[in-house]
């Protein structure tokens, strides 16, 4: 897999499945990681809320709501 198409979790299309590459360092990082958002994790983007934000994602067999601002700190690549 070529690593050209980097994107952030906030840019991933609804319904797509992505894998986490890295998480930008911030005060929130430990909390995101505790919730299972660690590099290598498969994440499915379920939907965005009616007003566009936040988004709902599925990972480790549970659903999590996360704001786009925070999702933008998570770099992902598509899984096919």
């Amino acid at each position: 897999m070529t690593k050209v198409n980097f994107m952030t979790l906030s840019e991933a299309k609804i319904g797509s499945v992505v894998r986490i590459n890295s998480i930008e360092e911030s005060v929130l990082t430990p909390r995101l990681m505790t919730m299972g958002l660690i590099p290598g994790t498969r994440v499915e983007v379920l939907r965005s809320a009616p007003l566009g934000d936040p988004i709902a994602i599925r990972l480790r067999a549970y659903n999590l709501a996360i704001r786009k601002d925070d999702a933008a700190r998570i770099e992902v690549s598509p899984v096919d």
Binding site: V27, L28, R31, L32, M35, P54, A56, Y62, N63, L64, A65, I66, R67, D70
Partner: peptide, 11 residues
Amino acid sequence: QESTFLLELPP
């Protein structure tokens, strides 16, 4: 002061 939102959505 910052606020965030990270919420597990229960079934």
